[in-house]
Design a protein around this nucleic acid. Structure first.
Length: 423
RNA sequence: GUGGGUGUAGUCAAGCGGUUAAGACACAGGGUUGUGGCUCCUGCAUUCGUGGGUUCGAUUCCCAUCACCCACCCCA
């Protein structure tokens, strides 16, 4: 117990963390090119924010939140998603007074009490973007295009982009009535889960995996056919924009986001290579969220992208992430005089931007070389009495085994020159 | 919350009722006193997730429990 990380959490070990740096850096660079600016919000928020934002009848709010009371009797919740906190910060700091639209990005941990499985953890990480202040489908296309370019830029090829419109509160409610009316005579035949969905979220039934429900749902009315004029025009605009950008998508009327705040555009990027939890990126438009949590009536659109799933996909696709070099120079020493000299040299080298290391376990010279090899040192500087007496050091190229004497003044220039040569 | 699978060293594993629990990789040390990668030698589980039970005897069979994995649900 003491030595077990809590269920559904994972350590990211030094041997793996470079992959995280890689995708995070790629994301930040993409954000910068698309002119999104980072916003950092607290890991926890008032519970009420998510109840209002995400919706208090959603699975997330009903049974998945890490909620606790703090010592001041406030109900606090660890972020289960990234959008509501950004909206809260936007409203609280009156960022709507800045030039619009506002474009934010974030890289955050999220927490949901789920039963862990492949691609699903209780603490997971999301990179996301949000555009506030425009209801133009330019923004939706930009957000989707961003995801597409970012994922493509990482070398990921075989994702499927699915888009849908889930309408606005008006046309959606109208559609739900129509759908319920269609399903009512078949209600008894529906699977147990779908009986539950009938009231709560009948649109989900269209997407049920049970063959029975699949059959029952044949010929059911589609949301897309019941969009109001405004929503229909918006969806057409979106498709026009995506076509113009050459982004391939399929319209999937089954996409229903599990967060209440979505309106109109809903989309996801799905992989079939990483098991059942294949959605690596999901998002959409939320035109009433900002208003709903107490801000001005400002529309928004954005996505969240699962870092763990992204890494799984890259691994499944055989995309190798370059592992950074971790050591330029190892300093091998013999004797106390050399040890003291080496210590100072190591510090000087480090301060000059060279990755340097030496042994601190008192290994003999052979052991030090073995250690240097283990650390993948590119060079080993050897210092012993011979060298000290002559005021030189020996520098060995570990790849070629070439070793040559270098004067003390030349150590740094030599290593720097070598380093530059490789760049 | 509901199902299914798996648990033997740091990792991958063999053993599946019977005396000291294979092997490989990794790790540590060494091959005569200043040089790594290759090679050779040595070391590395009184114990098979944990607790019960069956048995003369259990890593092997049974039950419980825990952990991990996978699927449903839901979503990133």
């Amino acid at each position: 117990m003491l030595t077990n990380a809590p269920k559904g959490t994972k350590d990211i070990l030094p041997s793996q963390v470079y992959k995280w740096h890689y995708v995070e850096n790629a994301f930040r660079e993409a954000c910068s090119r698309y002119v999104f600016r980072e916003i950092r919000t607290p890991v926890f928020e008032h519970t009420e924010l998510f109840a209002r934002g995400v919706g208090d009848t959603t699975d997330i709010v009903e049974k998945q939140m890490y909620t606790f009371e703090d010592y001041g009797k406030r109900s606090i919740t660890l972020k289960p998603e990234g959008t509501s906190p950004v909206v809260r910060a936007f409203v609280e700091n009156k960022l709507y007074a800045d030039v619009q639209p506002s474009k934010f990005y974030y890289v955050i941990p999220c927490f949901r009490y789920e039963k862990p499985q492949s691609g699903r953890l209780r603490e997971f990480h999301q990179m996301g973007i949000e555009v506030f202040g425009t209801d133009n489908m330019m923004a939706d296309a930009e957000v989707i295009g961003f995801a597409s370019d970012f994922l493509g830029g990482l070398g990921i090829q075989d994702l499927e982009l699915r888009i849908n419109s889930i309408g606005c509160p008006k046309c959606r409610e109208n559609y739900r009535q129509v759908l319920r009316a269609f399903l009512e005579p078949k209600y008894e035949e529906l699977c147990e889960t779908c009986k539950g969905r009938y009231e709560k979220n009948p649109m989900r039934i269209l997407d049920c995996k049970s063959p029975v429900c699949q059959a029952l749902v044949k010929g059911a009315p589609l949301m897309l056919d019941y969009l109001c004029d405004e929503c229909k025009t918006a969806f057409d605009d979106l498709k026009t924009n995506l076509d113009a950008m050459g982004i391939r998508y399929i319209v999937d009327p089954g996409i229903v986001r599990g967060l209440d705040y979505y309106t109109k555009t809903a989309f996801e990027f799905v992989s079939d290579k990483i098991g059942a939890q294949g959605t690596v990126c999901g998002g959409g438009r939320y035109d009433h969220l900002i208003e709903q949590i107490g801000g001005p009536p400002i529309p928004g659109v954005g996505f969240g992208l699962g870092v763990e799933r992204l890494l799984l996909i890259m691994e499944a696709a055989g995309i190798t992430i370059p592992e950074p070099e971790n050591l330029d120079v190892f300093i091998a020493v013999m004797g106390e005089r050399a040890r003291v000299f080496g210590l100072k040299l190591m510090r000087d080298l480090r301060n000059q931007g060279i990755k340097a290391e030496m042994d601190s376990l008192g290994r003999n010279i052979k052991g030090q070389f073995k250690y240097a090899d283990r650390l993948h040192a590119k060079y080993t500087v050897v210092i012993g009495d011979n060298e000290l007496d002559q005021n030189i050091v020996s520098i060995k190229n570990m790849a070629t085994s070439e070793q040559k004497p270098v004067s003390l003044q030349e150590i740094l220039p030599t290593l720097k020159a070598q380093q530059n040569q490789e760049l």
